[in-house]
């Protein structure tokens, strides 16, 4: 696909025709915050932090930049009163779950989000799905997945698979913005193969 020229925050940007707005912005050194995005993974579009304002043929809309394709003459604004409000409320909603996650706290400062705005529900997981998708897409082990639905959705390590696959890997821990992946994994360890850690330490 041929390159296109577009505008991001008033700056003329040249982008590959198959890029997303997020990729184009980052290539041009323009920062857009994300929580569920990872360069090695398919775009997910769940956290909605990367929402931006776009204007095509005079019509303005709000889109997630991690999925929105670049187009010729597209006008993108990565900050505006409304974009900031969306990010602020999303952060306030997530801080109800993980009030001390450094990534969230840092973003909260930037977007003036009040971490006590909403009732606390400390599940610690923000369901960005990095662990789930990394395990499926990069490691192809599918040891952790989403279960349930709606407000009940959570991540779950599958004991039968985790027992075989996770001991040597644990790479998803470093992706987790709240350290909940570790917590969930250790619970699974306790359930499915308790004592292995101790045995392994003793034999070492």
């Amino acid at each position: 696909m041929s390159d296109v020229v577009m505008q991001i925050d008033g700056k003329e940007v040249k982008a590959g025709g198959d890029m997303t707005v997020l990729q184009a912005a980052r290539a041009a050194g323009i920062h857009i915050p994300t929580l569920c995005h990872h360069d090695k993974l398919e775009p997910f579009g769940a956290c909605r932090m990367c929402m931006v304002e776009v204007e095509t043929r005079g019509r303005m809309s709000y889109v997630v930049s991690c999925l929105y394709p670049v187009a010729k003459d597209l006008v993108v604004r990565t900050r505006s009163e409304r974009v900031d409000k969306i990010r602020r409320v999303i952060l306030e909603e997530l801080l109800a779950h993980a009030p001390n996650s450094p990534e969230l706290v840092e973003l909260a400062r930037e977007y003036r989000a009040d971490r006590d705005r909403f009732d606390k529900d400390p599940s610690f997981c923000i369901l960005c799905g990095l662990c789930v998708r990394y395990c499926a897409e990069v490691k192809q082990k599918n040891a952790v997945d989403f279960i349930e639905r709606g407000a009940l959705r959570e991540i779950s390590f599958i004991p039968e698979i985790a027992k075989k696959e996770c001991w040597e890997c644990q790479e998803c821990f470093a992706l987790c913005p709240t350290s909940y992946a570790q917590a969930a994994y250790f619970l699974t360890e306790a359930l499915a193969f308790p004592g292995r850690r101790k045995a392994s330490a003793q034999s070492a």
């Binding site: 499926a136 952790v144 989403f146 599958i158 698979i161």
Partner: peptide, 21 residues
């Protein structure tokens, strides 16, 4: 569910995800 996962060639976690959804 394990049997189904194996027969249909789907990761067990995916079967569980659908079954709980």
């Amino acid at each position: 569910l394990h049997q189904i996962a194996e027969a249909l060639n789907i990761p067990f976690s995916r079967v569980l995800r659908i079954a709980t959804l």
